[in-house]
Design a protein around this nucleic acid. Structure first.
Lengths: 143, 143
DNA sequence: CGGGAGGTGGGGAAAAGTGGGGAAAAATGG
DNA sequence: CCATTTTTCCCCACTTTTCCCCACCTCCCG
């Protein structure tokens, strides 16, 4: 269960520390890839396997499926933590996420999003102004 | 079953004592997150899991689902009590709830709300002036 | 008036985050 | 195919923060 937001530095070699609370759940390996809205995604390996099985089952012909495959797989990178609990963010992914010297790691229960801090603040503002819209969403889900 | 209101100090490290009556029910862990009307919420872990299961099952691709996930999980924090029965209120959550040196913990049966005492007094006043309105609501619900 | 439980403050040990050096591996060119 | 250069990545060490636990105080109840 990944919860909370943590801002960490990206050092000159392109590494970020994984928040200590997240490490146990990523000890079995993780996959890093591009997400939506210009953020990066970190999936624990079990979640990733499940995801890939479902995506690979989609039709070769379906256009959405093709684009989804390209997004998920083409820039994916399997990573392990070093002894200090850090991972490398490959250069192409750093560029894709607009990341320079700071990264915001956001736990979303089953996986993690990685944001450039200023982009994340935009998303948060959006969330606050759209409050009523989400009230409706939650009501539908019975929350 | 959480009942009653308790005002406790927030110390310099951002900790509050959980009212002794509430501790047994939170011994299995709890999740702390932002609530409505600028208060914080404390959920016992089982209640939280039940609440979030539906959200985590939503699509990765759907935009509303993505934003809803961010709203729910990004500022949540799993906490355990120390041996003195206290928990840490992370700084971002203290800010979100307008909490400084005192916190009012309000038991609401299945979960707990945490208020800045002066904001809580406003809510109470609201309750008193709006009494007749709620009479009508309750009648509809058959209470 | 005494005992116990609940609440509060603070010191110290442990862990987390960050920067940098060096060895191994990979890439490049002759 | 070998030598040189470049890159990768692994690990050590320092600094800062976290958090755990001891001790004291206060309030309530007998």
């Amino acid at each position: 269960m990944f919860l909370g937001s943590y801002e960490h530095a990206i050092d000159e070699k392109g590494r970020v520390a994984i928040p200590a609370r997240f490490r146990a759940e990523l000890a079995g390996g993780m996959v890093l890839t591009r997400g939506f809205d210009r953020c990066l995604l970190i999936f624990p390996l079990p979640y990733w396997s499940d995801l890939t099985r479902r995506v690979s089952a989609l039709s070769l012909v379906d256009e959405d499926a093709r684009m989804l495959r390209r997004l998920l797989f083409a820039s994916a990178s399997e990573q392990e933590m070093d002894r200090q609990g850090r991972i490398l963010l490959p250069q192409n992914l750093r560029e894709a996420g607009g990341l320079t010297d700071q990264a915001l790691l956001v736990g979303l229960d089953a996986f993690i999003e990685v944001w450039a801090p200023d982009r994340w603040r935009e998303v948060q503002q959006h969330l606050e102004t759209q409050g009523p819209h989400f009230d409706e969403q939650m009501r539908k889900l019975g929350i």
